[in-house]
Amino acid sequence: MTETNFVLERYSKIDSGSHSWSSPSNIALVKYWGKKDNQIPANPSVSFTLDACKTTTTLRYEKLENPGESFSIDVFFEGKKNEAFKPKIETFFERIYRYMPFLKDYHFIIETSNTFPHSSGIASSASGMSALALCLMSVEVNLTSDQTLDTERSRSVIEGSQEHYFYQKASFLARLGSGSACRSIEGDLIVWGSHKAIEGSSDLFGIKYPYEVHENFKNYHDTILLVDKGEKQVSSSVGHNLMHNHPFAETRFKQAHDNLSQLIDVFKEGDLKTFIEIVESEALTLHAMMMTSLPYFILMKPNTLEIINRIWKYRQDTGSHVCFTLDAGANVHVLYPENEVEKVYEFINNELVAFCQNGHYLCDRIGFGAKKLTM
């Protein structure tokens, strides 16, 4: 599959319409950190798709009488007009215009909201851009379907033979808005980035992990401890760019490939011990890259370290399979299998919640991707 497969060459024009999708965030187990031109990852990654942490987006569109050279967009976040988000959406539209040439034919109203704090170390750009990409794909379906067909038959364009293309192009488009967004379209384990041992893996879009997964990794839980709910100290885009000329970049990229190779057997055999070693090492390596870049940053807070040390002690004392991972921020994702939910949840409430900002945390678990909402 190449980029030319996603170029839309012919479409009809309809007057107006609207679509709504909810799309989840995701948490990378093997981290994507560093990218090439056109949002191509410097290394492959694999993630759990989440369930409760999601963005809901409604896209309304109306045909312009006199289309111009620029995009016509209004953005509303949590019910209020948000000019700050507009430049990012315009950049996204510029990147995908080749694949969706109808974007300048319409005025778009984008209404979006999150179930979690924006820019706080949870991948809001992943859920937000994936939800928007899916809305745009629904517009494309409308513009390329025979308009004389009834609603049920038109819907079959997605549900039938074109379903794979629909979600694959949505992932491809989402990547051009935010790299990790391409991993939020489907679930529950998603691979993004070309890897020699994973059939179908691609730098252009995410794919469902294609091999056997042990029951140990079904219904995994993720409790997100909000150590710092403020704006991230360093945006993901800035962080990725710091990998250019980083002294340890090539070693890091090789490590990611090796860890993903190792996870193939881990997922098949249900090896929780090795899973924990890889996932925690990946989290700490991500932060090590930030601490050894120029300029350098320390994204963890004292309470982040306190939580990590308490998880290690609890695991040593009890034999639990609880572990942590981190995104590019201070918050801690506490991962644990289904059969340990009650004990780990008690541990979190008794020992970890005290280190969260205002005692706030989010309970989530593995999810299975985005959902189209009825208007």
Rank of each mutant, 00 (worst) to 15 (best):
T2W: 11
S12F: 02
S22C: 14
P24I: 08
L59G: 02
Y61S: 02
P67K: 07
G79S: 09
E83N: 15
A84R: 15
A84N: 14
I89R: 04
E94N: 15
R95M: 07
M100I: 03
K104G: 06
H107E: 13
T112M: 05
S124T: 02
S127T: 03
A133C: 11
L134Q: 01
E140M: 13
D146K: 14
D150W: 03
E152Y: 07
R155A: 14
S156G: 02
S156K: 10
S161V: 14
S161L: 13
S171C: 07
A181Q: 07
A181I: 08
C182P: 01
C182L: 06
S202W: 08
D203F: 11
L204S: 08
L204M: 11
V213C: 05
K218M: 10
H221D: 02
I224Q: 01
S235A: 08
H244L: 12
A249H: 03
Q262L: 14
L263H: 11
I264N: 05
L272K: 11
I276L: 02
E277T: 09
V279G: 05
V279Q: 09
E282L: 00
E282S: 05
M289L: 15
R310V: 01
A328Q: 07
A328K: 00
G329V: 04
E346Q: 15
Y361E: 11
R365F: 11
F368C: 04
